[in-house]
Each structure stands twice: as C-alpha cells, then as structure tokens.
C-alpha cells in the first residue's frame, strides 16, 4: 500500500509482461487490514487513494488544507444537526407511541420555536459560508505565479506545455504527452486476463492501476504554479485532489488553477468530466521535484545532448516523442 507520496523517481517505465494474480482476495484482505491500520493512525494523510479510505485527503497545498478544514467543519455541523434532528425524532418515536398509551396533543404551532429554527440555521450557514468565501477568493488568486503550465485535455490523454518559469518564457522544452500507462492499458481491456492488482508502481509499490501515465507532468516544489487548463475536443476535467487544483477543461475556453506544493512526491488524479468511452483511462500524474532537481531536469529537457549523464539523476523518462493525440 502506498503510505504517502514518494520521491524515489523513475516509476513510469513500462514494466514488462504482467501475470494474473491468483490471490486477489488474500491480497485484498491483508491489504485492507494494513490500510485500515494506516487510516486509523492518520485518516487524513496526504496520499493517493488507499483501500477503505473514508475521507478527503488533507492534501499538500495551503488551499487543500483550508478546504479540508472547511470540509471537516461542515461535516461535523451536519453530524451534530443529524444527531439533534434524528435524536428528537427517535425520542418521539419511542416516547409517544400509541401502544404505550400516548394521547396526542392538538397544538399545531409554536412561534418561538419556528423563529428559532429559521434563524439558527441561517447563522450556521453564514458561519460556514464566510470562510468558504475567503477560501474561494484565495483559490481564484493565481497572481504572482512563478511558473505557468498549459494543460490540454484530449480524448483520452493530457498534453502539458511549459509556458514560463522564473520570469522567463520556456520555449525549448518539448511538450509532454501524458496518457494511460501501458500496463494499465493492457489490463483494462475487456477479458484481458490481467489482474488490476498486478499493476504496480515498481518504485513505490503503489497499486497504480488506471492511475499511471506514460509520462507525468513534472513541477518544482515550493513554487507557485499556475495551470492554464483547456481542451481540444470535448470537455474534460483536470484535478489533482492533493493539490485541490481542479478546473473544467473546456474547448475554446482557458481556465486557470494554481498550486504551490512544498512536499516533493508523486500525486495522482483523474479526469472528472465524462469525456467518452475512455473517460476512466486518462489519469493525471504530477511529479513534484525539489527545486534544484527540477532545474536539472528542465535543463536536460531543453538540451538533452549537452548534459552529462550524471546530471540527469532526476530524469523521469527517457526522451521519446509522445504519441499523437488520438481522435475517436
């Protein structure tokens, strides 16, 4: 099981022939126990999805933390209101039973009560909506980004273009074509005979079925990155839950979102707007590298030939031209 994002590097290469797992059930039971243990310790760990997960990830950006706090506040408000309302109802159900000889009262209104249960919800809602408004304003503030990446959704892959970094336009870095990893792609075919549990990230051990890509987006840690999000054919949705960066990718419209990730690691998400038959097969993987490693990686991308091999430790994949955007 994945115990959180990791920085161990080269994880996206094809992993060779997969074999059918013969012990899915055992694996799942033991996996579930292990995961439950992890969950009990830290239900909210910044992590990619784990079995039996029951709550939002806390995420790794300031915005995702604010949202998580708001989410928990709203959740607890709902739990308390639920206890009050259902509690009152079940007390009524057990106390005022005809079978216990209860005689019905005849009153039908109580102005004070009605006033109270109109006003109190208004106050609670204002109490939730006010911080929500502040967070929304922060989410909409993509100014002062040190880096801009353009994200384009296609049926069924993502294209990433670096636009600017550190105040300078980025022109020589090749486009990243990020499509479903080959292992997942083989396993997901109808009657493939390949178990989804056999698709594993070799470096991290994470079961990354349908969450692995041929080549991830790479961004530096500690840098405010602005994502310009659009689409080329139908509507897609770009979302990394741990960043709380999410926006519809609409043809003809450029949306933006931003994230400042301090913790290096591999973060995974999925397209969230129905985009056709392979909607479930266009994951998003973002690899966050420490800034110096990222700079080395970027330099290598700009001019792979001029670099010493040793400087390419942070390289993610061998250079190869990405696939053409597939249509239909």
């Amino acid at each position: 099981m994945n115990m959180g994002p990791d920085v161990s590097g080269n994880s996206i290469l094809p992993k060779g022939a997969m074999t059918m797992s013969s012990s899915n059930c055992m694996r799942r039971v033991t996996g579930a126990i292990a995961a439950l243990g992890t969950l009990l310790v830290s239900m909210t760990a910044a992590a990619n999805p784990v079995p039996w997960q029951m709550n939002l990830p806390k995420g790794v950006t300031p915005i995702s933390h604010e949202i998580w706090d708001l989410h928990m506040a709203a959740l607890w408000v709902c739990v308390v209101l639920g206890i009050v309302v259902f509690g009152a109802m079940f007390i009524a159900i057990f106390r005022f039973r005809k079978s216990k000889g209860a005689v019905a009262a005849t009153w039908t209104h109580n102005t004070k009560m009605e006033f109270a249960w109109t006003l109190v919800p208004v106050l609670i809602l204002i109490g939730l909506a006010t911080p929500a408004t502040i967070i929304t304003r922060n989410m909409y503030n993509a100014t002062d980004a040190e880096m801009t990446v353009k994200v384009t959704g296609y049926q069924w892959l993502w294209r990433y273009d670096y636009i600017s970094y550190d105040g300078k336009p980025v022109t020589k870095v090749p486009t990243i074509w990020s499509r479903l990893g080959w292992d997942s792609n083989r396993a997901r075919q109808l009657d493939s005979g390949i178990s989804p549990w056999s698709v594993v990230d070799k470096q991290t051990g994470y079961h990354d079925y349908l969450l692995d890509v041929t080549e991830p987006l790479v961004i530096p840690a500690g840098v405010k990155v602005r994502f310009l999000i659009t689409a080329d054919d139908v509507i897609h949705g770009w979302w990394v839950p741990d960043f709380a960066a999410k926006r519809d990718a609409l043809p003809g419209i450029m949306n933006d979102a931003w994230a400042k990730v301090d913790q290096p690691g591999i973060y995974r998400g999925q397209c969230y707007v129905l985009c056709g038959q392979d909607h479930s097969a266009m994951p998003i993987v973002v690899k966050v590298l420490p800034r110096d490693q990222f700079n080395a990686w970027l330099a290598a991308r700009e001019n792979p030939a001029a670099l010493d091999k040793a400087a390419r430790t942070a390289e993610v994949t061998p250079q190869k031209s990405g696939p053409e955007p597939a249509k239909g």
């Binding site: 039996w52 709550n55 839950p241």
Partner: peptide
C-alpha cells in the same frame, strides 16, 4: 460517499484497486 471523498470520479466503468472494497 467514502468513494467520492477518496477521489473516485463518477461515470467510470473501471477504477483503481484502492476503490475496490467500497
């Protein structure tokens, strides 16, 4: 609701194994 919190998108026929149990 748990699946949604964990990040499972709607309208998908297939999903990561982390979503399998729920």
């Amino acid at each position: 609701q748990f699946l949604g919190f964990a990040g499972m998108p709607r309208r998908i026929p297939d999903y990561n194994v982390a979503f399998a149990d729920w």
